[in-house]
Amino acid sequence: MSTRTKPEVVIATGAAGNLGKLVIQELHRQHAVVAVDRRPIRGLPKDVTQLRTDVRWRQIEDVFRTSRVRAIVHLGLIHNPRGEDDQYRFNVVGTQRLLELTAKYGVDRFVMLSSANIYGPDPDNSYFLTEDAPLLGAEHHHEIRDLVAVDRIVQNFFYRHPEVKTVMLRPVHIVGPRVKNAPSNYLRLERPWVITGFDPIVQLIHEEDVVRAMMLASNYGESGVFNIVGPGEAPLSRILQVLNKKTRSVPAFLAKPILERAWSVGASGYPPPELRHIQYNCVVDGSLAKRKLGFQPHYNLVDTIRSVVEYRR
């Protein structure tokens, strides 16, 4: 009886993040949203309920007790390359906890944002990796380790709880005027590095197109894992040409030690494994999302590229 009278809500984690805010603004048009983050949340619509807590703590369960949670939109993974000490635990245990609550309270949907970086750039990669390609991204990049672990937990959940519509999205590099991730910051550099003699094929997607994909995923009638691909692919050099960038060409054997040094003394914000992204291909196939979710990016490639330098907040 009591479930009928409870208000229906959607929980969105990672609400303090730039992408989180965009997703919540969109979700807010259709649902009552509870925005969760352990960081201070700013700049959300006034009638969005804000909850500043760690998803591993008890406080989050109160939402489930007092409301009927229709869906969890999980954007709350930390991608800080400088790695707060408990980042791995926060990501893995936090996701596990949300899934437990999803099962316990009969939540209809669980939507999660992962990344296509989970496959990892590699010279042996085929073009257009599908969703069942091996997740090798953690081999060189420890930050990806969290994503791989979380991916496993969520995939396991698919089988144990088929009644929950669980969707995991693996978008390519997200860029846009508001996001401040490694690819966007790289494209904003005055003179970005390139690796001498290498020019990998790169895929980018506009932040608003990712939000659109998240919305489609949160209304999708089944479970699934989907690569989310933007408006096509291009060699890195051509992307930099669109932005009129002068580049600094660094041979691979120098680039790695220099960046490792710079990174360790805090002179660079780019973790050394990111270099592989400007050396090797990690091109994924987005046709499944197109077919099943009906996802199509709205921004074309040139506009997507230019969006990184349009406006910053």
Binding site: P123, D124, S126, Y127, F128, I195, T196, G197, F198, D199, I201, P235, P251, A252, Y280, N281
Partner: peptide
Amino acid sequence: EKWSARLPFVSVFFARVGQIVGTPENCRR
């Protein structure tokens, strides 16, 4: 050959003139 993808300049040259690392997936596509 797969190892060509590890070579500077060669990898880019091959790709731009339409030559592709020989994996079954690439061939199928």
